[in-house]
Amino acid sequence: MSMYENILISTQGQTAIVTINREDKLNALNMQTLSELSAALDEIAADSTVRGVIITGQGAKAFVAGADIKEFLDQTAMEASALSRYGQEHVMNKIHHFGKPVVAAINGFALGGGLELALACHMRIAVSSAKMGLPEVSLGIIPGYGGTQRLTHLIGRGKALEMILTADMITASEAKEFGLINHFVETYEELMEKTLAILERTYTRSSTALAAAIEAVNVGLEDSSRGYEAEIHLFGKCFGSADMKEGVAAFLEKRKPNF
C-alpha cells in the first residue's frame, strides 16, 4: 500500500483499516484527504488479499467532524459544485459501489461530510458516546456529499428532514433506533472487535456473491423499477462462478466451503 499524508492504512488479516489521520483538525475532510481516500480505495479494490474495509478516524474524539470549512471560503457556486461532484463521484459513490464490504467504525463525532462518509459505507457501527448530524444549514448550505439522498434511504423522509432542517446532532442510541447505524458498543476496543467480527463473518462467504448482493441492493435503491431485474441477472450470473460450484459441492458433501 502507498503512504499517504492524511490517511493511514493498515491490515489485520484480510481487512484493510483506513484511518483518517488529521486528529488536530478533528479529521476534517479537505480536498487532499478526499484525493487520498480515492486513491487508497483504488489500491484496496485491486488487492486480492483484502476482502473487507474498515473506515475510522484517528483519536478518541472524532470519526470525521465534517468538511474542512476553510476550503469553503471565497468559493464560487461553480467551484462549490465541482467540489461536491468530486467528493461524491470519487469517494462517496466509490465506497457505496465498492465490491468488498466497507464498514464505518464511528469512534466519535460524525458530522456533515463525516456522516456522509459513514452513510456511503455498507454498514455502520458506533461507540455509544458518538454524536451524528448534518449541520450544513447552520452554515447556509446543504449536505453536498450525498447526505440528502443516503440519509433519506436509510431512515425515511421525515426523520431525514428533521435531522437536516434542525441541524441537531443525535446520539448513537437514537441513530440505532432510527436505523442509521447497525450497532453501537461502549468502548473503542469493542468497536474494532465488533467491526472486525462482522467483516470476518463475511469472509466465510463467497466474495463473488457478496459483490453481486451489494450491486443488486444498490441498483434497487437507485431505481426501484430495475431492482428485481438486476437481482435476476446477478442471480443467474453467480451460477457461472467457481464460488457457486464450490458452495454447492461443500453443501452436498457436508463440509465448510473454501471460498
Rank of each mutant, 00 (worst) to 15 (best):
I232C: 00
A209M: 01
H96W: 11
Y145K: 03
F239D: 01
A46C: 08
E23T: 15
A39S: 13
T204M: 08
T166I: 09
A118W: 08
S207G: 00
A209K: 01
L210C: 00
R255M: 07
T15I: 05
A110P: 03
E5G: 12
D243I: 02
D243F: 01
A212P: 03
D24W: 11
E136A: 04
V50Y: 09
K176S: 14
F72E: 06
L151Y: 06
S35H: 14
A213L: 02
I181A: 10
D168M: 12
D47F: 00
K256S: 10
G13C: 09
K256Y: 08
S225D: 14
T15W: 02
F72P: 07
G13A: 10
V127G: 07
T76L: 07
C238Y: 10
A62E: 09
I214R: 14
D68V: 12
L37M: 12
L161T: 15
L196S: 03
A110T: 04
S10I: 09
L111K: 14
H153N: 02
S128D: 13
G133Q: 11
L151E: 08
G220K: 07
A110Y: 00
A175S: 07
Q75H: 10
K94A: 04
P143N: 06
L41G: 14
N258D: 07
Q75I: 15
I181R: 15
A65I: 09
A209F: 02
E177M: 15
S225N: 11
E231N: 09
A209G: 02
R150H: 11
I214Y: 04
M123I: 06
Y228E: 12
T202Q: 03
A65L: 07
L26S: 12
G99S: 10
A45Y: 05
G146A: 08
F72Q: 05
L139V: 00
D243Q: 02
S84R: 08
A249R: 06
M132S: 06
E89S: 05
L234E: 04
L154S: 13
A80Y: 15
Y145N: 02
E193K: 08
I214W: 04
L199I: 03
L252F: 06
E36K: 10
I232G: 01
A167Q: 11
Y86H: 11
L196Y: 01
I44K: 15
E200C: 00
E215Q: 07
K25P: 11
E200I: 00
G57C: 02
H97K: 05
V185S: 10
Q12D: 06
Q58P: 07
L41T: 14
F259W: 00
L34C: 15
E79P: 14
A213T: 05
R255I: 04
E23L: 13
D243K: 01
V137P: 05
M123R: 13
E162L: 08
S48R: 11
R51N: 11
